[in-house]
Design a protein around this nucleic acid. Sequence first.
DNA 1: AAAAGGACCTGGTGGC
DNA 2: TGCCACCAGGTCCTTT
Length: 273
Amino acid sequence: MPELPEVETIKRGIAPHIEKHVVQKVIIREKRLRWLIPDNLATLMKKKCLEKVHRRGKYLLFQFSQGYLLIHLGMSGSLRLLPTSSPSQKHDHVDIIFNEDVCLRYRDPRRFGCILWTDLPVIEHPLLKNLGPEPLERKFNGQYLYNLTRVKRVAIKSCIMNSHHVVGVGNIYANEALFLAKLSPFLPVNQLTLLQCKQLVKQIKHVLNLAVKKGGTTLRDFVNEQGQPGYFQQVLQVYGRQGQPCENCRNKIIKTQQQGQRATYYCPCCQTS
DNA sequence: AAAAGGACCTGGTGGC
DNA sequence: TGCCACCAGGTCCTTT
């Protein structure tokens, strides 16, 4: 389930191998992702030079000599670099072929991801233009979070997972950051003090930076561009640890469904405010 | 207006 | 062994 660290890991892995290369061929085996892959995508991309790979939130942006390819991995998507001759398997929906040694292969069993093309300046694309700041940039700071939340009453966990407020924080890292900041996931955001906002932002940045360093989190199916897992799951403090002792106070970690939505993991002893 | 819930999708798991 | 219900989760859309 790729969150920001996983997408960043993939970006760093693939970029050196495909930047400044020209697309020779695009194979689309299944176009029914979250939205249909455009019919003319292969024509649009053929013979175009990939200038640079960017990331915005959990989106990968492939900047071509003209136009951008947008890829989102949903929760089960992966991008790997393979020799063009390697046989495709089930759920390998798209190949972007640069030469016989370099094929960028998109796999997504659950098809929650998307592959789209835009000729607009990419930040004006409807999927990107309303996104909040990048969590690792200075614009995302305690004061920003404090100002944003004065008139809202949602639970803090929902707030930081909302991509209009800050991008890239999914369920795993939201749970982890709240634990490290010693904040209850259910706390209404307008009750946060400025100090608490600063602590939470600090921990979000900390946990994301550490996860990038570890090459992401692999719970079930995340693999990097080489098909290898990440190692951040070894550092997880609460996510997936229900019934196990809190590393801080040894009380049991609790798992609940947050308003029937995503699973929330927390320590009821340490995360009290 | 904000918040909550629904929908999309498939593989893995656990119960019977 | 087989069948089935259920869960996982990112994000847009719809409903409250």
